[in-house]
Write a protein that binds this DNA or RNA. Structure first.
Lengths: 228, 228
DNA sequence: GGCAACTTTGACGCAACCCTGACGAGAAGG
DNA sequence: CCTTCTCGTCAGGGTTGCGTCAAAGTTGCC
């Protein structure tokens, strides 16, 4: 879910934005001034910032600089002023877009989508998680591929889903209830026989010696754990 | 040096832009219509495109789609129309920014700088994906052409769109829902029979042995994958 | 208006997958 | 030593999903 930080000191504008954004399944935080905005940006890590330049405590451009010091999150500037200089200043400070008030909500949302879309594939820190390697096989989470001995291993949807949950928690114990609910749905939780069957299939397809698993470890009575 | 492609059919606008851009040490190409624009984009690999929507030969939004089929180059749209719908349509088609005429040159240049700055750290070598070759056929994403046995293969619009999405994700699994939404629109997601029909057509036209596909792989229950 | 190309829809056979139940092995505890 | 519990393994049966073909519906062009 996309997280938006709205920064504006006019309550009615904030309200209008929050309503429209939440209706479109965005997660929204709001800040009435620059200090709060910088704090929230640091603590909540929004995917995009909508920033009004006219703030009570500091210059909007300073907020942009404050953000750009440590993050490349897209910044969409709102402003009542049409002056060209101000636009240039904000954009050169690091803003991604500039919309003058009064603005059309449709247009704003479209610009927001564009900003988010652009930033998408460069997800910070996510790239490390795309592939996991062991000495026996390689799991590529983005491509949904498993490689072993130079060949692709075919996994069924359920097998893949189970593997995905385990790999995303590499080294950590995943409880059987949690596994069941993540793979089969929230209404499951006691059907541990499913786990036994599918863990066996994964081991048969991926472990060098399926009866003495090295990577798919059983924690009796609790759950399973994936180890590199 | 940053390379800009200017697309506009009004000579005086092109002249003004070219003069201002060259004065700031940009390298500039210019195209008077959509067809030329797509050709130049493919041959010159600009770092940013400035695109007027009102072109003589094709709809500006089609130009955006044509570019987005194979490149993520920033697109800055110019338009005389202030209509909100048009902005939304252009932005959702993949444009990065939208400026209404008459525009201030300072502002345009600032937006251009912002667009270029954003795109900078993008992974290198991504734009070279204009053509993909297999031992059986060649797909040219920029020219929207498929070559096989020395001849062009005729694809319908839907077939092409489907192929494009798959090729853009070469090697990666593309979920059926994602395929449906990208090709047929956001309101689709369950009509998997469409996929079956059109995958069969693609295979018949491109695979050496359509009943044993080597490049268009089915991942049962999940989606499809294109492999070189 | 009529034709051609393209898209959508429905039906059918077949293979693959998911669920289920049964059985044995091993560990823990009385 | 027996009971109880959990896990691993296997094989059968119901169900789903895929490929294929053909026909109906739609669109665009002459």
């Amino acid at each position: 879910m996309t997280r938006v930080l709205v920064v504006d000191d006019e309550p009615q504008i904030v309200r209008a934005l929050v309503i429209n954004l939440k209706a479109r399944a965005y997660q929204v935080d709001a800040a009435p001034d620059g200090r709060t905005a910088l704090e929230l940006a640091a603590s909540r890590h929004p995917d995009v910032v909508v920033l009004d330049l006219g703030l009570p405590d500091m210059d909007g451009v300073e907020v942009i600089r404050g953000l750009r010091g440590w993050t490349r999150v897209p910044i969409l500037v709102l402003s009542a002023r049409h002056s060209s200089d101000e636009k240039v200043e904000a954009l050169d400070a690091g803003a991604d877009d500039y919309v003058t008030k009064p603005f059309g909500m449709d247009e704003l949302l479209a610009r927001l989508r564009a900003a988010v879309r652009r930033a998408e594939p460069a997800g910070p820190g996510e790239d490390d998680l795309t592939t996991v390697e062991t000495e026996g096989f390689t799991v590529d989470l983005a491509a949904k591929k498993v490689h072993r001995d130079g060949k692709d291993v075919r996994l069924t949807p359920t097998e893949w889903h189970l593997l995905e949950v385990l790999v995303r928690n590499t080294g950590r114990l995943v409880g059987q209830k949690q596994l069941l609910q993540e793979v089969w749905g929230p209404s499951y939780g006691t059907e541990t026989n499913y786990l036994r069957v599918y863990m066996a299939q994964l081991r048969r397809k991926l472990e060098a010696d399926p009866s003495h698993p090295r990577h798919f470890i059983t924690e009796p009575g609790m759950g399973y754990r994936f180890e590199k």
